[in-house]
């Protein structure tokens, strides 16, 4: 006997993501999902971004970290409101789910925010698969990871709306072709904006900040 089903296996997460999206619309806050492999510089990029955006843009951060509070401690120093999700308490450690993010966003409180940034778990595979109700997805790739990563993890670069090529201050010491790295990202995702930056020297920040501020303004009418 055959039983027809025809359902999305991840429907539960998609339903939760829709709920989150509604919540974020009500609160009139723009949500950015930041993803990368561990160590690409998400936290460092965020620290610099927050410092430059605030107080003109009011930013909150949800940070997913596997079991430490190191990232949250670094981010709190910028003056932003930060909450941390330790995924090991919930049995999963490769991505943040929509329901975890919504719970944290409610705990953090979004009434007085223009922008909520979610630093996802360091992983180029799983977070790409899970919608968290965000408005845009950013992927960070550092020049130390090699030019071929976009071709090896195409889904991540496909679902991203914007990419940051980070740590360009290290280029003089590496045998890395930055144009090839950018070219590979755009092979996977033609027309995706790619910002070449250094969270250390703060080179290349203006275009990225302009992009982000415009996105926040387009959704919320705030922050410009």
């Amino acid at each position: 006997m055959e039983i027809k089903i025809q359902k999305k296996v991840l429907q539960v997460n998609e339903t939760e993501a829709e709920k989150s999206r509604k919540f974020f619309r009500q609160k009139n806050v723009f949500v950015l999902n930041m993803m990368s492999s561990p160590g690409s510089g998400k936290t460092e990029t965020l620290c610099k971004t927050l410092t430059k955006l605030m107080p003109g843009v009011r930013v909150g951060v949800i940070v997913g970290d596997i079991c430490t509070t190191n990232d949250a401690d670094r981010l709190v120093k910028t003056g932003a409101r930060v909450t941390q999700i330790n995924t090991d308490q919930f049995g999963g450690d490769c991505h943040l789910s929509a329901s975890l993010v919504l719970d944290s966003a409610e705990k953090l409180g979004c009434d007085d925010l223009d922008l909520l940034i979610v630093e996802n778990i360091g992983n180029l595979v799983c977070p790409a698969e899970f919608d968290i109700g965000e408005d845009s997805r950013a992927v960070v790739l550092s020049v130390t990871e090699g030019e071929d990563k976009p071709l090896k993890y195409p889904l991540m670069f496909r679902v991203a709306d914007v990419a940051i090529l980070n740590k360009i201050d290290l280029l003089p010491y590496l045998d890395v072709d930055r144009d090839l790295a950018v070219g590979n990202m755009q092979k996977v995702h033609p027309r995706m904006p790619v910002f070449e930056m250094s969270a250390k020297t703060e080179e290349g920040y203006e275009p990225w900040l302009d992009w982000l501020k415009l996105k926040v303004f387009e959704k919320t009418g705030k922050g410009l």
């Binding site: 006997m1 039983i3 027809k4 089903i5 025809q6 359902k7 999305k8 991840l10 889904l155 027309r191």
Partner: peptide, 20 residues
């Protein structure tokens, strides 16, 4: 040259049916 490309299929994770 530089088209705006969207995905039509290839991301599915679906359960279609069971055989008892």
């Amino acid at each position: 040259e530089d088209g705006d490309v969207e995905m039509i299929s290839g991301r599915e994770i679906e359960i279609i049916s069971l055989e008892l």
